[in-house]
Design a protein around this nucleic acid. Structure first.
Lengths: 152, 152
DNA sequence: GTTGATGCAAAGGCTTTGCAACTAA
DNA sequence: TTAGTTGCAAAGCCTTTGCATCAAC
């Protein structure tokens, strides 16, 4: 019983989606989505930094990055997960639910584990939450590096 | 294989712990912990509001609430979980890992599910995360009310 | 009496908002 | 052309910090 997952939209489908919904395809939106495709999950200023590093010519403001990330999240394209503290982390993959949080470096790493995802999903689906219907889940595995040396 | 859980500290043990570690037992700390025992999880201003409602006589400042909650979290007494957006939510129970998030009301509800907790814990324990050791996990089940009428 | 803890106000960090200028369609 | 977007700056919110005062021990 494989879990059905939403797919990450490449730039082409991303543009299509915008157009389909009557939104404009702007350089800023393309740049943000491109950044998210590479970064996986990122805060607004990580996205901004990424863009500034790769596209010197393109001007993108902080507020636009926020607006774009928020709009995409509201459209269901990204998830809002969250860092400890007060920073919003956006996740490009709506189907990605398991995050490893490095409590020392204070950043998220990716975990791909379909078996675990399916297992939890199955468990949750057969449970009832009085009066509530589950949309999705987020599993945060809080970890610390197990060795002194820098881990990769 | 029941999961061993840290216990919630009642006020007496809370005071003991403070004294044992060389910290002072202040009215503010007692008030904050009392609030947390009732609220389960709360943001700093929810704690403050709770205290102001019940103990008109006692003066507690915002910064003290923050300081106290942070210190307790650093001592491992509370967990920092997080609301969507930029607010830090503290959880009084270090052994409580499953949270139902009502996305409409934007608040957390409690889920007690030892079976599910044990299951996930067991799964995580038998997995390896290259270079990382797991401290704990947080499962957020994002839900919406399934009926129009207000749910309890 | 000693320190650690508190309260206040100011500073900080991240996010949102208002609005004129811009640009995709 | 024209309505949706952007960029800028200001405002907002929550959290942290510095320091004089206070109180637990």
């Amino acid at each position: 019983m494989a879990r059905r997952r939403k797919k990450i939209l490449d730039i082409g489908r991303f543009s299509e989606l915008l157009r389909d919904r009557g939104y404009r395809v702007t350089k800023q939106r393309l740049a943000v989505h491109t950044a998210m495709l590479t970064l996986g999950h990122a805060t607004a200023d990580e996205v901004l930094e990424y863009i500034e590093d790769r596209q010197k010519g393109l001007k993108v403001s902080v507020s636009s990055v926020y607006n774009i990330l928020s709009k995409m999240a509201d459209m269901g394209l990204y998830n809002r997960i969250q860092g400890i503290g007060s920073r919003i982390v956006f996740d490009v993959n709506p189907g990605r639910h398991i995050h490893l949080y490095d409590s020392r470096a204070q950043l998220f790493k990716e975990i791909e584990d379909d078996e675990l995802t399916s297992l939890i999903d199955a468990q949750l689906k057969r449970r009832t939450f009085r009066g509530y219907r589950m949309d999705r889940f987020d599993l945060h595995i809080i970890c610390h590096p197990s060795r002194k040396k820098k881990v990769q």
